[in-house]
Simulated assay, not measured.
Amino acid sequence: MTYRPPAAPMPDSIRHRLRARQHPARAVACPHCGAHEHRPCTTPSKRRLLTEPHPQRVSAWVRETAFCPACQVEPGVPCHLDGRPLRDGDVHPQRAAEARETAA
């Protein structure tokens, strides 16, 4: 057997470029099904892997990565309307567009 030295840890910036064919929302854990970062979402029975992430995971990714032009909040802060948070952690469409542009 040949000796193979341990691999060096890969920086996140390179890891995300190598995973470019995956949806960028897979960079965060899914609040709906509990899938870990960089793992696909699953059905409630955990038997099937889904090809697309849950909408809640996409909203969590948008919330963590983009500034919201509609309500002027920073990344990591939930969107609000008249001081009240949006229902179920939703985000404004402008913020989602900003996150898609940033990921591209």
Score class of each variant (00 low, 15 high):
91 V>Y: 05
87 R>P: 10
86 L>R: 07
72 Q>Y: 08
82 D>H: 07
34 G>T: 03
68 C>D: 14
67 F>A: 03
60 A>K: 11
10 M>N: 02
86 L>N: 01
24 P>L: 00
12 D>L: 15
46 K>R: 15
39 R>P: 04
7 A>V: 12
84 R>N: 10
12 D>W: 11
51 T>G: 14
30 C>N: 09
46 K>E: 14
87 R>M: 09
41 C>E: 13
44 P>R: 13
4 R>I: 13
11 P>T: 02
59 S>H: 14
38 H>V: 08
38 H>C: 03
6 P>I: 03
53 P>V: 04
89 G>V: 01
76 G>H: 05
41 C>Q: 13
92 H>T: 01
95 R>V: 09
49 L>I: 00
23 H>A: 11
94 Q>H: 08
59 S>L: 00
73 V>N: 01
99 A>W: 04
60 A>M: 02
69 P>D: 12
55 P>M: 02
3 Y>H: 09
9 P>V: 04
29 A>M: 05
66 A>C: 14
60 A>N: 04
11 P>H: 10
24 P>M: 01
13 S>T: 10
27 A>G: 13
21 R>I: 14
80 H>I: 00
26 R>A: 07
31 P>S: 01
87 R>L: 09
101 E>D: 08
84 R>V: 12
104 A>S: 06
79 C>P: 06
52 E>Q: 15
83 G>M: 05
68 C>R: 10
16 H>R: 14
15 R>M: 14
101 E>M: 07
104 A>M: 07
11 P>A: 09
88 D>F: 10
59 S>K: 07
77 V>D: 06
11 P>R: 08
81 L>N: 07
67 F>H: 11
88 D>Y: 08
67 F>M: 01
85 P>V: 08
22 Q>D: 15
12 D>Y: 08
56 Q>H: 11
78 P>Y: 00
20 A>G: 10
57 R>Q: 01
21 R>N: 09
3 Y>W: 12
39 R>T: 09
82 D>W: 02
55 P>C: 02
63 R>V: 00
3 Y>M: 10
41 C>T: 11
59 S>W: 07
100 R>H: 04
10 M>L: 15
74 E>R: 11
36 H>D: 12
50 L>P: 06
54 H>C: 15
76 G>E: 02
31 P>E: 00
16 H>G: 04
87 R>S: 06
76 G>L: 04
99 A>L: 01
28 V>N: 08
71 C>G: 03
30 C>E: 05
35 A>D: 12
9 P>L: 10
79 C>L: 05
49 L>D: 08
51 T>A: 15
59 S>N: 15
77 V>P: 04
36 H>M: 09
6 P>T: 00
100 R>L: 10
71 C>I: 06
40 P>L: 13
18 L>E: 13
98 E>T: 12
13 S>Q: 07
28 V>M: 09
29 A>H: 06
12 D>E: 15
72 Q>K: 07
65 T>A: 11
19 R>K: 11
59 S>V: 00
20 A>F: 13
88 D>V: 01
39 R>F: 11
15 R>G: 12
79 C>T: 03
8 A>M: 08
64 E>F: 01
9 P>M: 08
95 R>H: 02
48 R>W: 14
25 A>I: 08
11 P>Q: 07
3 Y>C: 03
40 P>A: 14
36 H>G: 15
74 E>T: 02
85 P>M: 04
42 T>E: 14
29 A>K: 06
